[in-house]
Design a protein around this nucleic acid. Sequence first.
DNA 1: GTGCGATTGAAAACCATGTTTCAATTGGAG
DNA 2: CTCCAATTGAAACATGGTTTTCAATCGCAC
Lengths: 223, 223
Amino acid sequence: MAGDAGFAETRGRLLSAALEVFAERGYRAATFKEICGRAGTNPAAINYHFRDKLHLYLAVIEQGLAELQRRSDILDDDPTAPPRQRLRHFIGAVFRRLIGQESPSALLRLMACEMVEPTAGLDVIIQRAFLPAFEHLCGIIADLSGRRPDDPITKDCALSVFGQCVFFHHARPIISKIKYPKYDLPVLEHLIEHTFRFVEAGIRAVAGQEAVRFGTAQIECTS
Amino acid sequence: MAGDAGFAETRGRLLSAALEVFAERGYRAATFKEICGRAGTNPAAINYHFRDKLHLYLAVIEQGLAELQRRSDILDDDPTAPPRQRLRHFIGAVFRRLIGQESPSALLRLMACEMVEPTAGLDVIIQRAFLPAFEHLCGIIADLSGRRPDDPITKDCALSVFGQCVFFHHARPIISKIKYPKYDLPVLEHLIEHTFRFVEAGIRAVAGQEAVRFGTAQIECTS
DNA sequence: GTGCGATTGAAAACCATGTTTCAATTGGAG
DNA sequence: CTCCAATTGAAACATGGTTTTCAATCGCAC
């Protein structure tokens, strides 16, 4: 080998920089200039280590997924805890990932980009990141509503919950002009609390099987 | 004047074509090639009529706003109707605009693009399209919850409602792989009904001022 | 009919981006 | 020390997209 940095070193810097840039701008709008600028390398290094932009992107996804599996606080909750608490934990984890600065956020943001502008990486992201989280959420909703996890209505609710979380991330340019100029920690906590209460009631209304169960649970929660 | 088409004629064709393409692909990904292809003109015509891509885009927004004001079925509901009905009308109108094929949809889709990838046109869209719809929605929610339209909690709920609608449009690439391969009319109606019930309960839970009011309203609705 | 200004088409220039080339550099093996 | 393969930097190349140029066309005023 040669170079002052070493193979793994520059490869790693490229991966990190690319993960950031792809997550910020999406696949298409991300440029070599910016990636190489942050990584402190030449465009040639991308070709050398990853062949081309697409393969760099796929490698980024791969790395993001690996990191996600290593330290995921979305899926690892206590399955014996009451479902309301698990739902709140889930929402908080997704919000913090999407909006906060923590490291493993990038993959989730990248997933958000894929929603709008799908690429060849969409399938693997869906299979290995979205579906597990989605099914986990379905499980929580099932516990909360009494329906089965694979009930179509359960899935509709899971989509709605996900949509709430993603929207507050996606629409930030507009939201910042309407109400929350920036998402600092107190605002984040407020949004999590709001979203939790909002979707919990939505789930009970749409998926709850008996009005009685719903009514009592809600009163206990609101008062 | 000269040319077989005439000034207003080609200008109009360009505007229509550009509105479509911008709404489908977003500002950046839209190309002259596609716009001119659909309009049946040369790139030079864009320069001649609108100076450059940005000004074409701004003109497109202007036209979309004008058309929106002319035939808007989002804002013109019956203010004396019960708030639940008005909420359902609002959600249906937004869904159909975002997902359906009707003509004035394009501006709303364009707005959705601006959320993800803001441009110089964002401000005018917010001021003249988003804010009116948003305030209208706040009014409905206020009627529904008993809060004031400018109450922060009312606004949070309005964001959530908007988020629900926008998500089902934005995340279509993922949703099509999870549950709804395509959005035909029955699916659309189902999503509208689901969203309405979901957010109505969310609003009552988050913004409703007394648990009693909430409980009775909900039972009446669910059973 | 002639000339003029408005409009358009074809092509070229320009620019940004992804990709490739190639020579230079480096660290280790023999 | 010398050679070798791995790695990198600088610059060239190709491509696709936007903007400009310029000549050709057309309708109208005179």
